[in-house]
């Protein structure tokens, strides 16, 4: 599976690793400091949910760091970001929540989301370029001569009547009769 990695691939990988460690750190805070986080946000009712989100973050982080290709895990992070934003967004309407702090948290999540999306796009684009390098099938035409010379080589074939398109839908050529345009054959 040896293949060279380009410079931008390296920086995308580095960003992914950074996001992986960030996931684990944030997850640890949510999991072990669930109560304080909940209190800070005025979301005491949701302590267990926050801990659960912490587990999700840790799993994703480990996935990013441990896998050969972090791309799907980064997409997973983006899904998680959306979930976080939705959960926080709902709190903005709750009277017991500290709306300013929820707002700050949402801002932070949105900031990381931007990084996640940048990272995912860079990784996806790069992995596509790598694919193109590794598996180049441009010599597999299946044709005996260059494709351009094979155009129409099967024109001895007669389209069966039931598969012909209606004459009215054929390309318009010269009118045969005066006055009225005719479909060509």
């Amino acid at each position: 599976m040896a293949h060279h990695r380009s410079g931008s691939r390296q920086s995308a990988d580095a960003l992914a690793r950074g996001l992986g460690w960030f996931s684990i750190a944030l997850g640890a805070v949510e999991l072990f400091g669930g109560r304080s986080v909940a209190r800070w946000l005025g979301m005491e009712r949701h302590e267990r949910l926050i801990r659960a989100y912490g587990v999700r973050e840790i799993v994703t982080g480990v996935g990013i760091l441990a896998s050969k290709d972090p791309t799907p895990w980064i997409w997973g992070r983006i899904g998680g970001d959306a979930l976080d934003l939705a959960t926080l967004g709902k709190e903005l309407n709750e009277s017991d929540a500290d709306r300013d702090r929820v707002g700050i948290a949402m801002g932070a999540v949105a900031g990381v989301t931007v990084l996640d999306v940048m990272c995912a796009n860079a990784l996806t684009g790069q992995s596509m370029q790598e694919r193109a390098r590794r598996w180049d099938y441009s010599d597999r035409s299946g044709l005996p001569r260059p494709a351009d010379q094979m155009r129409g080589a099967a024109s001895d074939f007669q389209t069966p009547r039931d598969m012909r398109i209606p004459d009215a839908l054929r390309p318009y050529k010269q009118p045969q009769l005066q006055g009225r345009p005719q479909p060509s054959m």
Binding site: A132, W135, D136, Y137, S138, D139, R140, S141, G142, L143, A147, D148, M150, R151
Partner: peptide, 8 residues
């Protein structure tokens, strides 16, 4: 896509 190009 590279295989598609090979086919013209």
């Amino acid at each position: 896509l590279s295989m598609a190009e090979a086919g013209g």
